[in-house]
Every structure is written in structure tokens, then in C-alpha cells.
């Protein structure tokens, strides 16, 4: 199994990463960053190089961990569902969870843990409200398989898919303020601040940046 499949459908490394551009831009230079589900460390390496961050990673697949450590990153093998609780409160300025939340067992608890250990949270995930997903289910009557969701229903690691609206509502419930968001549609990306109904239809993926309101 490739690290890609284990991180829950993270796009292939050669794909353009507009979400990475957005994240890199958001992160203050020299800050403390934890990338949960860091894969082979591509984003983390970029943040260390371009933003001079004190970067740490957590990754489920041992291949991903070993590849990350070999490239000089500080990465541990760990599971977002169970291992975030080891970290102390406010251990990081930013905690990133890219393309992983939909593969966790308890997204709500994971988000609360992220908010506990980080000042700012950055979460990216595939949007199940995208028009292509809705259309496939409506017209074909089958679980949608799209470029962002490239699995059959029986072998997908994505067990907790949601739409932009679902995610926004969960953030409200958990007392998380959405500071900014990026709607990604294929290779195009758009800053949307806070997502509206149209974004929920047109974005195939989204990146949210949040902070605690209390």
C-alpha cells in the first residue's frame, strides 16, 4: 500500500499543489508546525525550506515516515485518531491536517485535539458536495468515484466524507472560527473567506484555516 492511499487519497506528488501554496503562504516564518498525515514529507520539507519553520510530522504509514526522516524531517509514526493526545496544549503555532480528516474514525475529536495543541488549524479535505459527486450519485445511483475521491466504496479509506457546509457547521459546533478558506477545483483555486452554497457546489477540495474562538 502506498503512503498516498494510506493518507486517504492525497493527490499524487506530481499533481499541482495549489493547497500547498495556500498553506505555505499562511504560515508565519519561524513558527512551530505539526503536519498530521504528512505523507512523505513534501509539504513539511517545503515549509522548513521556504518558511524556516520548526516542523514536525506525524504519518500513519511507515514508508512515509522513513522517507520523511531520510530527507531530514522530524516525523513519527502515529495515528491522528489516537496519538494527538500525547502533545501538550499549545505545543504548536499551526497544526495541519491535509487530506486526512475524512479517513479518521472520529473527526470531531480529532478537530478538538488539533485545536487544543495548535493556535491555528489548517484542514484540507475532498468536498462531497461537489457537483460531480452529486451528479454521479443522482444519475448513476452509485457511490461517486472522482479525481478527488479515487476509490471504490469497499476499499476507500475515506470513511467520514463531508461537504463544505457539513464541515462549516461542525466548526461552529466546536467553537472554531474560520479565518480563511481556499476552494480548489482541479488546478484552479480561489480564496473564499467563508464558503457559501456555490462554493459547496464548485469546489472539489477545500482548505480551511481556523482558530479557537475562546
Amino acid at each position: 500500500m502506498s503512503p498516498n492511499s494510506l493518507t486517504g487519497g492525497r493527490p499524487l506528488p506530481h499533481a499541482p499543489r495549489t493547497d500547498f501554496d495556500f498553506i505555505a503562504e499562511k504560515i508565519a516564518p519561524g513558527s512551530r508546525v505539526l503536519d498530521v498525515g504528512c505523507g512523505d514529507g513534501e509539504l513539511l520539507a517545503r515549509l522548513v525550506k521556504e518558511r524556516g519553520v520548526d516542523g514536525r510530522g506525524m504519518e500513519l504509514s511507515q514508508e512515509g515516515v522513513n522517507a520523511s526522516v531520510t530527507r531530514g524531517l522530524s516525523v513519527i509514526q502515529g495515528d491522528a485518531d489516537t496519538d494527538l493526545r500525547d502533545y501538550p496544549k499549545d505545543a504548536f503555532d499551526y497544526v495541519i491536517l491535509s487530506q486526512t480528516i475524512q479517513a479518521t474514525h472520529n473527526p470531531s475529536i480529532v478537530l478538538q485535539e488539533l485545536a487544543r495543541i495548535g493556535q491555528h488549524i489548517i484542514v484540507s479535505f475532498p468536498n462531497f458536495g461537489h457537483w460531480r459527486v452529486r451528479l454521479k450519485l443522482l444519475l448513476q445511483g452509485r457511490m461517486p468515484e472522482t479525481p478527488s475521491l479515487g476509490f471504490q466504496w469497499y476499499d476507500t479509506p475515506n470513511i467520514h466524507l463531508c461537504t463544505l457546509r457539513d464541515f462549516t457547521e461542525l466548526c461552529d459546533t466546536l467553537g472554531l472560527h474560520i479565518d480563511d478558506a481556499l476552494a480548489v477545483n482541479g488546478t484552479r483555486a480561489k480564496r473564499i473567506g467563508k464558503p457559501g452554497p456555490l462554493d459547496n457546489l464548485t469546489a472539489s477540495e477545500a482548505v480551511f484555516m481556523m482558530s479557537r474562538t475562546s
Binding site: R56, Q62, V65, S68, V69, V75, I76, Q77, G78, Y87
Partner: peptide, 18 residues
Amino acid sequence: VVHALNAVAANVSFVEID
């Protein structure tokens, strides 16, 4: 050991070799 190091937000990598 890794859990203890995480608890103090230490800079730690953990590699398991197959």
C-alpha cells in the same frame, strides 16, 4: 519513549525498520 518526548513537544523522529 516517543510518547514521553511528544508530551514535552520534543523534536523527535520515530522510525520502525521492517
